[in-house]
Design a protein around this nucleic acid. Structure first.
Lengths: 113, 113
DNA sequence: AGTAGATACAACTAGCTAGTTGTGTTAGTG
DNA sequence: CACTAACACAACTAGCTAGTTGTATCTACT
């Protein structure tokens, strides 16, 4: 039971918002989703997302900066992997919320039938 | 155990990112944090956040659009309240991640001493 | 040393959006 | 019926950033 202060101090609000901002980009979600299968090089992530090398690299640097992924140099390659498993929990929770909304809409549709 | 498809289809990736985007704004986090104490009018939320009435109203409309809050008209007032409790779980998880990062840094600092 | 491949860095542009200003709209009140 | 209070809507602006283009760095290999 990790309790969070309330009301949230401004600094923490800022931190939380920043964290969410990092996850608010489809490309970064895709990268993290691919990394779920284990570490990958930039080229592999490029393949998985269909984005340009520069773009992949740029997004990875953001994820790295915020500690969501880790970088390991392997010879000429750079292997990226998930560094913070809580991102999956976050995605699960979001999906749960989406699912509930969907069910609500379905309920309304069926109720009107 | 609500499992999420993998790899995530593009549409779902987009939905998830949008959801995170909604939460990526400090003002909206503040509003939700205030609503944790129960429903509130626009004026009360304005008081709690220090923002302008128009700005509060605008952010509330975003939260409403994405189903995170609900609006109830009460005479001349509009009472907003949390409609999706999963936001708190999200914030808790984020805070947990932040806490872990902080501990890591502390470990490093102590290790160097 | 020279070359090729893998990755990172930097500058630029286009699109999005938070906040403001100004103005409706609706509901109570005398 | 004015008048006021509470809220929402619309237009505008400034700042941020995703993606691209161009280039640099770094490593392995011959």
């Amino acid at each position: 039971m990790t309790s969070v202060p309330h009301p949230l101090p401004d600094d923490l609000v800022e931190l939380i918002a920043r964290r969410f901002r990092v996850l608010s980009e489809p490309m970064r979600i895709k990268l993290l989703d691919r990394l779920r299968d284990g570490g990958a090089t930039v080229a592999e992530l490029q393949e998985a997302t269909g984005a340009s090398q520069q773009n992949v690299s740029k997004h990875l640097s953001v994820l790295l900066q915020f500690g969501l992924v880790a970088r390991r140099k392997e010879g000429n390659f750079a292997r990226y992997e998930i560094a913070d498993d809580s991102v999956f929990e976050l995605c699960e929770t979001v999906c749960g919320g989406l699912r509930r909304q969907l069910e609500e809409i379905e309920m309304l549709l069926e109720g009107g039938r």
